[in-house]
Amino acid sequence: MQSKERILSRLISYALLGTLLLTGGCQYNQRPESAALIEPASQVEAHPLRGKIIALADGKQISPEELFKQLRNHRFILIGEKHDNPEHHQRELQLLQALQNGSNTRLVLEMLDEQQGESLARLSSMSSESEIKTLLNWNDRNWPWQDYGPLISAALREGNQLKAGNLSKPVLMQIYQTGLPDQPRLATVSTIPQTIRATIQQQVYESHCRTIPFEQMGPMTDIQLSRDASMAYALNHQLGEQMQAILITGAFHARKDTGIPQHLRKLTTEPVVSILLTETDDSIKTAAEAISSNAETADYIWFTSRSEEKDYCAPLQQQSHKQDS
Rank of each mutant, 00 (worst) to 15 (best):
Q202P: 00
L151G: 07
L162N: 06
Q202W: 04
P181T: 11
S207C: 09
P170C: 13
K163G: 10
P170G: 04
L186I: 05
V171F: 05
T178F: 05
E158G: 11
I192R: 01
H208C: 06
K163M: 15
L180F: 04
Q203L: 15
G165F: 10
R197N: 09
G149I: 01
T188V: 09
L172K: 07
L180P: 10
N160R: 07
Q203Y: 05
Q202L: 12
E206G: 11
P193G: 06
R157A: 14
H208V: 14
R185K: 08
R197E: 15
Y205P: 08
L180Y: 03
T199E: 09
K163R: 15
G179K: 06
L167V: 15
N166S: 07
S153R: 15
T199H: 03
I196C: 01
L186V: 12
T191K: 04
I196T: 11
I192T: 12
Q203I: 06
R197D: 12
I152R: 02
L172S: 12
A164P: 09
A155K: 00
L151K: 03
L172E: 08
Q177N: 15
Y205N: 11
C209F: 01
L180G: 03
A198W: 04
P150K: 01
I152K: 02
Q202H: 13
P150S: 00
T188Q: 05
Q161C: 12
L172W: 09
V204E: 03
A198P: 01
H208N: 03
I175C: 01
Q201G: 05
Q203A: 15
A164I: 14
R157P: 05
P184I: 10
L151P: 12
Q161P: 08
Q202G: 03
N166T: 06
T178M: 02
S168P: 04
I152V: 12
R210Q: 14
S190D: 12
N160W: 05
S207E: 07
T188F: 00
V204T: 08
I200L: 14
R197S: 11
Y176I: 14
L151Q: 08
E158R: 03
